[in-house]
């Protein structure tokens, strides 16, 4: 699992690739919360996520809640079939703000 962070239109774009599971999700959580604690809105690029489990979903939920309390933007972008299936199973597809692409997310939030 790899995490790449870039700045786009005043937001942090956090691109995750690989498998997010119990052993890698703490890194995802740390990266997301770090951005939020620094006061940045976040777009999470899930296009290259091959797998995500409940601990990965939990990291997204925790970051989302922290962004909300700080009135920061938080969106998911480019969610592939596999992560989307998991979000749907958790009924979180209706909770998160989900954009088709990173660009459209940045345009909407920025």
């Amino acid at each position: 699992m790899d995490i790449a962070i870039s700045d786009q239109g005043g937001l942090k774009v956090v691109a995750i690739s690989g498998e997010v599971d119990l052993s890698t999700s703490p890194k995802v959580r740390d990266a997301l919360l770090d951005c939020i604690f620094k006061g940045a809105g976040v777009v999470v690029d899930l296009s290259k996520v091959a797998y995500i489990d409940s601990s990965g979903v939990a990291s997204l939920v925790e970051a989302f809640q922290n962004a909300k309390t700080r009135k920061l933007s938080f969106a998911l972008a480019s969610v592939g079939d596999t992560p989307l299936r998991v979000l749907k199973l958790a009924r979180l597809d209706q909770v998160f703000i989900i954009h088709d692409t990173v660009d459209s997310a940045v345009a909407a939030l920025g």
């Binding site: 489990d53 409940s54 979903v57 939990a58 990291s59 939920v61 925790e62 809640q65 998991v86 199973l89 958790a90 009924r91 979180l92 909770v95």
Partner: peptide
């Protein structure tokens, strides 16, 4: 309860669902 959006506790729900 799924209405309670918070981290954790989803595992058993996933298993039951699947």
């Amino acid at each position: 309860e799924l209405d309670d959006v918070r981290p954790g506790g989803l595992g058993v729900h996933f298993i039951r669902e699947v």
